[in-house]
Amino acid sequence: MPAGSPDPEAPLTEAALTRALRRAIQTADPRLSRFDPLPRIISHDDFARGHCGWSQLVGNYEGTLDTMLPGYAQHTSAMLSTLPHWDAGSHGGADSSYALKIATRPRAGAQNVAIKRLNLRHRGPIRFEMYFTFKPEATELTLGDTALRSVGLLFDLQGGDRDGDAERVMPHLRFLNAESGQHRHIWQFKAERVPFQPAGGSGETISHYHLSPEGWQDLPDGHQKLCYNEIATKVNWAYLRFDFDLATMRPTALRCNDRVFDVSGMEPMRIPAMKNLWCMLNFALFAETDTDRRAFLYVDSVCISGDF
């Protein structure tokens, strides 16, 4: 045995054995094998067991729903879909019949958002993975590959009430598919935010529509051509992985299919800590249409994990 090589007969440390067992079990499990989770799985949503905690993002209001900002008022409930197409029937998910479907209204610029609301228990690395695809509603017998503007995800985070650095931090990421009828095919982030507005008159409730269309910036070298396929009713599932460090409140990595992107310049929105959002760990998925056709974001499965 060369000097300095590990002794193959030496017993594994408990930590090494734990890592090896975890890896072996996850790799052998068809439900998890296509994910690369961090050691602790926070949630694994395959949408064959219901909505798995993904609910409608409702806006803040006070006294009357009329105080809700229009951006939020347009949101509707996500649904479980078999991706049923008028010409070919149900497409189905990657591994089951169902996917989560987030559908916009048929109005240019319309958006819809689904959200999963948790709390954090450790400020360390987290990983968000999903298999997703997107399409416009097949109302026309055309390719329609510029009808959908974007799909994306955002986190809504805040540290604990005893953390000296606590801020509300909102990393936003979207794949800008098309804009004003032109292909863009680029990943973007958004650090700019709009001012808060009071919702109602008491001053207890405020609101801001952070998905307003202004302020998106291109990720450096962020162009990517995804598999749109050849007609509006054929889809293929894409893989997305977004890593974020809750300790530093900064993104650390982004991968989509075969491409890895540099996120060192990706800034999240930062807001002074809010009085009732301590330890918030929210994940949101959204779709946006560029035309008067509904845009659909389909999510086959999501795995959220952390290193703790």
Binding site: Q56, T76, S77, L80, S81, T82, P84
Partner: peptide
């Protein structure tokens, strides 16, 4: 599921399509 919230209906009105096949 909330199909419509605080929406004013007049003329022809309908909720957004919803998949409920399960």
């Amino acid at each position: 599921a909330i199909l419509a919230r605080n929406e004013t209906w007049k003329g022809h009105a309908a909720t957004e399509p919803f998949e409920a096949g399960w």
